[in-house]
Every structure is written in structure tokens, then in C-alpha cells.
Design a protein around this nucleic acid. Structure first.
Lengths: 121, 121
DNA sequence: ACATATATATCGCCGCTCGATATATTGGCG
DNA sequence: CGCCAATATATCGAGCGGCGATATATATGT
């Protein structure tokens, strides 16, 4: 949002999906949609730039893999798929993002709840 | 955030504060800071444009009030304070924002929790 | 007297979002 | 076999919005 760290939900979502196991772009898009019953649309314009920046930050790693077509001799020009894996650093970041998210919802609940929180000196 | 309605927390905060009673800009800034133990900084650059847009949308109303200084004859050129009040429409919007926020946190928890939700056909 | 607090308000830079677009391969269906 | 939909990855830039910087005026405390 602003004001208080937007706690970047998109990043949180992608990192948490990758924390469950390696995946690739298209799959992540589908997983996000499935999990959210269609409400969360992780479009290419959002996803790929983010994966790139995550990799630049060293939070994930990537590697290409050849996809074997049914009746294709492996001539080396088949379709390729880019797998992403979360790094230890990425896991730490995910923990932070989760913490930030909890803090954020707690903060909002402060306002929703009405009364200010008790101060502990 | 994007992807799924940023659920505009700043607006939610201001509306919820006004739902507790009329207030004015400077006070809202202070309240926000107090409630959040200083983490939420509702700066002028954020607050005033927002109050304006909230009023344009008919979610809040405003009225000026003269502030009486200690030893001042009320000559009509004292300091003025602009009070804001939430409108019925604003209360409805607040409810919506709260609902959106709940939906948002529920969605994030879906990813944090791991397993996808059961589908109800 | 002067600094600080109260009080409201605007402007515009910067950065991010994400719709549009591009491209190539593979699978299914009539 | 021809064609469309699905699979798969990727870039670009217009447009929008957040918010730091800035402006202005009064009131209070020292």
C-alpha cells in the first residue's frame, strides 16, 4: 500500500509457492489461479519481471530444461522450460515477508478493532 | 498490491478513524501514529489528497470551524480547522473495504497454509 | 525574539503495475 | 492435414499513484 510497507503480496505468493517445490512460470500462473479460485491472476507482465528481479536478488535460482515431445528425436531444438528454485536466502526473505504480512494485518486490526493497543514500556 | 485489489489500507485506516467520530487532518495524523506505535506515518502529502478524493466521492463531508485562541477577541481571522465526518455512503464503503481486507488476508493464508482449498462445485 | 507545534494544502518526480504485444512449440480435433 | 487453443517465456512503456519537499499562517512556550 504505502505508509507501511506494502508487504508485497505478489512476491510473497511466488516465494511461498516455490518454497513448496521447484516450478516454472506458466505453472506458477496456474497454481496461483487454482489456489485462489481464479481471483489471483499472475499475468506474464507481472510474473516474469518479478522472477527476474527475484533471481537478481539471489532469492531464487533458475535452470533450463528440455521438454521431450512425444515423437521427437532429441535434436536439441525442442521446447524449453525454465525451472525456478528458492534459495536459502529466499527462504529467509519469505519468513520476513510473512512476518511483515502478520504485522500488517495486526496493524489494520488495531484500527478495525477500535481501541488503541495497550502500551508496554 | 495489484493482482488482487490493493485493498487500499490508507483509505481503510482513515475511514475507520472517522467512523469512530469526527476529526480533522492533523488529528488523524496523530491518531494514526499513536494507534500504530509510530509505524504508520500519515504524512500531509498522503493525507490531504486522500481526504479530498474521499470528499469528492461523497464518502466524507467537511466543515470549517474557528479555533478560539486564549486571549483573542473573535475578530474572525483566527486559525481555522477543517472537520471531517464520515457519510452513510462512507460507512458502506468502509464495510466493503473491511470485507476486501478479510478476503485478502484469507487469500494470502491460502498460500501460506500450503494446501489448496477444497473446491465447491 | 525565536523555535517549535499546530494546521492545512499543493506539486511533480520517480518508480512500479500490468495490459498489450511478440514469438515459438505442441496437442487435439474434425 | 490444417488450424486453433494451449503451453511457455519474455519485453515494453503509458499511466497512475505515493509521498517527499515545499509553502503558508497562527499559536504557544521559553
Amino acid at each position: 500500500m504505502a505508509l507501511f510497507d506494502k508487504s508485497d503480496s505478489a512476491q510473497l505468493v511466488v516465494l511461498s509457492l516455490l518454497a513448496e517445490g521447484a516450478s516454472y512460470g506458466y505453472q506458477l500462473t496456474k497454481d496461483a489461479a487454482t489456489r485462489s479460485s481464479g481471483t489471483l491472476r499472475l499475468t506474464p507482465g507481472v510474473l516474469y519481471p518479478m522472477l527476474k528481479s527475484l533471481e537478481t536478488e539471489g532469492l531464487i535460482t533458475s535452470s533450463w530444461e528440455e521438454i521431450k515431445a512425444q515423437g521427437s528425436a532429441e535434436d536439441g531444438t525442442g521446447r524449453r522450460r525454465k525451472w525456478y528454485r528458492i534459495s536459502p536466502k529466499g527462504r529467509k526473505r519469505l519468513e520476513q515477508r510473512i512476518a511483515a504480512h502478520r504485522a500488517y494485518t495486526a496493524l489494520i486490526d488495531t484500527f478495525l478493532g477500535g481501541r488503541p493497543q495497550e502500551e508496554r514500556p
